[in-house]
Structure formats: C-alpha cells, structure tokens
C-alpha cells in the first residue's frame, strides 16, 4: 500500500458535522447496529468499510433517515446534524433529506430529461424563484458533478440514455442540487467500470471542498484513495475509527488488521 500517498491526505477541519451517540438499529428481532458512536467531520471524506452485512450501509441510511421507509426498522440513540437531533419529533425527514443528499449503489436517474433530473429537488423544495434561477442551479450542479461539458447540449434528453458513469455523476448532480451539507454515498462505484470509477473518485475529492462526504465502499483501495477518515464496521460494531492513514498502516484493533490484510471479510 505504498502507492497510496496516505500522508498527503490532511483532514480539512476538525469541526464535527454529524455526531452519533449510542446508535442501535434493529430490523425486527435482528440487531443490525450495536451501540455506535461516531463523529463525522465537516469538509472531509469519511469512508465506511467492512465485510458484507456488517451494517455500514444500514448506518449510512440512518444519517438521512432512509431507514424510516422500512417497516420493521427501529433506530435508537441520538444522531445530531449541526447539534440538531435528526430523530427529533420536530424534524421532518423530507427536509432532512434535502440537507443530507444521497447517492445510491446503482445509478438511478429518473426516466426524465437530464435537466428535470437535476431540477427535481430544487423544484419540490422551492429553492428557485424563477426559471433563470433554476437554470443556474442545474448548470452549477452539473458543473460540480463534472458532467456539464458532456450534458450541456442534451439537457432535454433522457437521463437514462447516458452511460453508467455519466448516470452516476448525474445522480451526484441531482443530490447536490438542493445544496446539502452532507453527501452520503452508498457504494457509488460498484456498478461502474474502472475509468468511470476514477472519474467519480476524482469528483468526490473535489466535492470535499463544499460538503461533508460519507462513502460506503467494499473496496479498501477506494477507501484509502478517497477518504481522510475511515470507519471499520464488523458484525454491527464500529471496530475502529480514525484517520485513513492510521487505520490502513497502523490499525489498533486486530480485527481491522485481519480485514485489511484479507484474512476476514
């Protein structure tokens, strides 16, 4: 792992964006997340790694309350976004999800035009006062998602007609169009080829300037490439959380070491 230039990766800030304390998640009887405490920093890429079924995606989906849509799922503990408990009664998950955007494993653009895909979020949240406003948001989002040059001449064509990597960048543009504070990415590159993956990874690094990014990934190389901080989950426990360089080169927990050296997982 010498080629990963881990030392160059400096954490941008120490300001805590999301603070999770004592989070437990149950699916019916099964206990999926066990008492997880984690602080996610602002303007930082945080990677969640771990073997399949370790709960990393489940925990990610707690951060924008996507688990609410699953009938028998129960979340306890506290998760605070800028000090506000997101599971508080006064918080509407719909508003929360405009603040905490999400990109999914498989690119899932709406079967609508590229423009409408990006404009959908701002439209339903009433973020644009005029058509010109909306045009500007769409352009800005597509530029930030590094898709503007490829898409500017075909904004009225269906988003589903793009290639896989372009579709995923369109989904990122859609997620950042509502100007969220946090961007959650659930294995965003697992359905992409290596070239598209490289483009998306580069983009993630650029997004760090404006957002706090949390990425779930199966690939330890990817975690090492894009993140500043890494959390290792195993069997629903947060085993280790620290700076990416430290987690990969000098893990404190023997389970982390076993995982990154390929003995478990």
């Amino acid at each position: 792992m010498e080629d990963l230039r881990l030392t160059e990766r400096l954490v941008g800030t120490d300001e805590v964006k999301i603070q999770a304390r004592g989070v437990n998640v149950y699916y019916g009887e099964s206990h999926a997340i066990k008492d997880v405490d984690v602080d996610i920093l602002d303007k930082t890429v945080t990677a969640f790694i771990g073997p399949s079924g370790c709960g990393k995606s489940t925990f990610l989906r707690c951060l924008n309350r996507m688990n609410d849509t699953i009938d028998n799922c129960r979340v306890t503990g506290s998760i605070r976004l800028d000090g506000q408990d997101i599971y508080d009664r006064s918080v509407d998950p719909v508003q929360l999800r405009a603040q905490v955007g999400m990109v999914f494993q498989k690119p899932n653009p709406f079967p609508k035009s590229i423009y409408d895909n990006v404009a959908y979020g701002p439209r339903i949240h009433g973020l644009a006062r005029s058509k010109a406003d909306l045009d500007e948001i769409v352009e800005k989002s597509l530029r930030r998602a590094a898709l503007w040059n490829e898409a500017k001449d075909r904004l009225d064509q269906p988003g589903t007609g793009l290639s896989g990597g372009q579709q995923q960048r369109l989904c990122i543009a859609r997620a950042i169009a509502t100007s969220p504070e946090v961007l959650l990415m659930d294995e965003p590159c697992s359905a992409l080829d290596p070239i598209a993956t490289a483009q998306v990874e580069e983009l993630i690094d650029e997004l760090r300037a404006n957002f706090s990014v949390v990425i779930v990934t199966h690939s330890m190389q990817q975690a090492a490439r894009v993140s500043q901080r890494t959390a290792f989950f195993h069997l629903g426990n947060l085993v280790e959380y620290g700076e990416t360089g430290q987690v990969f080169t000098n893990p404190r927990d023997p389970r982390t070491e076993s995982y990154i050296t390929g003995r478990i997982g």
Binding site: M66, T69, Q95, G101, R174
Partner: peptide
C-alpha cells in the same frame, strides 16, 4: 423499481410526491 422510489426519497420528496411524480 425500488431504486426510483429511493432516488426520489433521497432528494427529499415526500411519500405523496414520490407516488404522484
């Protein structure tokens, strides 16, 4: 496909918006 529902929920559409849009 559930991915469409997730996409809409993910950008903050309400349940009713997910269904009707």
């Amino acid at each position: 496909p559930p991915s469409i529902r997730e996409a809409a929920l993910g950008v903050g559409a309400s349940k009713q918006q997910v269904v009707f849009h």
